[in-house]
Design a binder for these strands. Structure first.
Length: 117
DNA sequence: CGTGTGACCGGCG
DNA sequence: ACGCCGGCCACAC
């Protein structure tokens, strides 16, 4: 089965942070992918909730690399500025068009595959 | 301590 | 094809 990155993280919350922080530059993932990696694909909602905490958290969480299944920047509105998310993604070498990651499927980074061998 | 909601996803009508 | 509803766990009131 899938083993969590750090056992110290007992909550989704912390696990999500670790996974998101491990997302390589130029790559993006989805809430469902993270939830799936954590073993609860049905709880994708909490992943987004964790991201919300990332905004309040002192840690720098690349939440811009986390998008929904469609590759759409659903949470852009939660950033410091509505354009902060796509700006950061563009800096990562990604292309954001109409609030959606272009070539998302090619840029997709699945933690369950990349992390868990 | 109980209820509600949350940046989603998948299934069903 | 589109719309609605349920589900999952954690945090806020």
């Amino acid at each position: 089965m899938k083993k969590i990155i750090n056992k110290k993280a007992n909550c989704f919350f912390d696990d999500v942070f670790d996974v998101v922080k491990l997302i390589p530059r130029g790559k993006v993932t989805s809430y469902g992918a993270i939830a799936n990696y954590l073993g609860t694909k049905s709880s994708a909602r909490m992943v987004g909730w964790a991201m919300n905490a990332s905004h309040t958290s002192s840690l720098k969480i690349p939440a811009q690399r986390v998008v929904n299944r469609n590759g759409m920047l659903t949470g852009k509105h939660h950033f410091t500025t509505p354009t902060e998310m796509e700006e950061l993604l563009k800096k990562d070498g990604l292309i954001v068009l109409n609030d959606t990651v272009v070539d998302f499927k090619n840029k997709f980074w699945d933690p369950a595959i990349e992390i868990d061998l």
